[in-house]
Amino acid sequence: MRLTVRHQTSYTYSKPITYAIQTLRLSPRPYEGLNVIAWRVRGAARHELPSFIDGYGNLVHCHTVNHTHDSAIVTVEGEVETRATDGIIRGAEETLPPLFFLRTTRLTAVDPAIEDMAQSLPGAGFERLLALMHGVHARLAYTAGSTQSNTTAAEALKLGAGVCQDQAHLFIAAARALKVPARYVGGYLWAGSGDENQASHAWAEAYLPEFGWIGFDPTNRTQPGEAYIRASIGLDYWSAAPVRGVRRGEGEEALSVKVKVKDWAAQQQQQQQQ
């Protein structure tokens, strides 16, 4: 499936600020399930941003605005060809061994409630992870705005609500409690034609020796397929964060994010009809 992405983030400040810097993990890298046709990340000056590959193998862009400004814009535009792989990640550049992804972090720390949840799952291997995916969906009702970016898996579980980030964290924490390596994935999701609710998304991957890394999307209770664009991985949200930024100045920030993921074929058709 050919997907096109246009992701624009506009920042406006109530008072001019003197400096802003961001680390962006918004670019997919190829694997069997995805081929990058074109991709670019641009900043306020509309030039391509400097980039590097991080320790996890993510393509990272660095955006700085080093002068007084009251607005800034970051634009991601790209086109990819995806292929369904039953959620299995093959052919990706794996920089760190699965064992590393058993490491706990503050956001994915296991508390007794998570331990309990993990230990009471039925089955083994893949079956058990499927059960976990459904369990997370059932225990954490998707509620926009219910949590913050620094909410831990344990806090979200207690609250019984969260967003895709929290659901991914809970999945990861419980998987690791079962000694299954697990990691966080950030990216984009094509939610079907006509759906206005297009957005950035987060899900999880777990490692089973017989399959390698496999994706699980607790939010949508499915294995990531050709509608998914995998843009970053990490131990948790902090290491895989699509955007981490700091600014200098007193102004309040207002943020507007527009994400459009489109099916390229449908787009072509539409254009021909017009």
Binding site: Y56, F100, S239
Partner: peptide, 18 residues
């Protein structure tokens, strides 16, 4: 032992491959 290194806070994944 691999865990001794990989699960050690002193091991910084950010440095992998650099």
């Amino acid at each position: 032992p691999a865990e001794l290194v990989l699960h050690n806070d002193g091991f910084r994944p950010e440095m992998q491959g650099f």
